[in-house]
Design a protein around this nucleic acid. Structure first.
Lengths: 142, 142
DNA sequence: TTACATGCAAACTGTTTGCAAATAT
DNA sequence: ATATTTGCAAACAGTTTGCATGTAA
């Protein structure tokens, strides 16, 4: 029965730990994003999702953009560009790969440790590998 | 001495084979793109590059966009999104991977056959792998 | 001479920003 | 009381499009 309070407290703590003030808007975003399931979405997706809640309280699109940017800088989200044109956010901030069904616009995570990439190239002098992005793109079987 | 004519003829043939009329603008683009070296560039990059030729003749930015789109649909170019926000074109249309130095904004090709990806996941029912995009992102060594 | 390509400007999408009002500390 | 955050509208980047003019076949 005190469930809601506890979840809300967890979000508040998460924000504070990240150095972000727990505003109503940020808590709304947390409430939607951090429910245990990994999510992939654009700013527009999140805006639509939060707007259609009948509660009446909402947030502006500009705040969505600012919030997502802040969360990303604070390490609460990661970003991904599958599309060029729009930026995808991912609640999974660990290093992982993706599989993308362009038709269904469906993006899922793949564990790095399930896959192995052999034959990595030498990187230029003074450089090192930051990370490796892998996107497996699928299409309907002919 | 007839070198220039031959190259120009090759571009003309390439366009015609792709079902595209060899206009002055498309030939200019070919002249810059297909010189044997693989190139990675944005529409803006190409526009700047072709604009600064002192010849005087030039092309509009809209034509650059239309031309690049047409070339891509005709299979003369491939595209790539490293950045989200802008679309990169690649003169290498075979299946290959990339290595990207975000600092220097430098993109290079990697041979698919030099690398091997093990542990590919099962794809959803009725789907098959279209292609796999790999981008190795490098950064200065700490 | 006809279908297609070009160039310009205007439209459009995704994202950022300036600033006054609201809110967290 | 002070520093941040919000929301709006305006600005911005990258890209596409409508339409009159120009060009290839």
């Amino acid at each position: 029965m005190s469930e809601a309070v506890n979840i809300s407290d967890a979000h508040k703590a998460r924000l504070q730990a990240a150095g972000l003030r727990p505003t109503r808007q940020r808590l709304m975003v947390c409430g939607y994003l951090f429910d245990g399931k990994d999510k992939h979405f654009t700013a527009e997706d999140l805006f639509r999702e939060l707007s259609r809640k009948d509660g009446g309280d909402s947030l502006s699109l500009a705040t969505i953009y600012n919030t997502l940017k802040g969360f990303t800088e604070a390490g609460l989200l990661s970003t991904l560009s599958v599309d060029s044109g729009k930026l995808y956010y991912d609640t999974n901030t660990s290093h992982h790969y993706h599989i993308y069904d362009a038709g269904g616009r469906l993006l899922s995570d793949l564990e790095v440790q399930a896959m192995e990439i052999k034959g990595l190239p030498d990187v230029p002098e003074g450089q090192e590998i930051d990370r490796i992005d892998v996107i497996i793109r699928t299409k309907p079987r002919d």
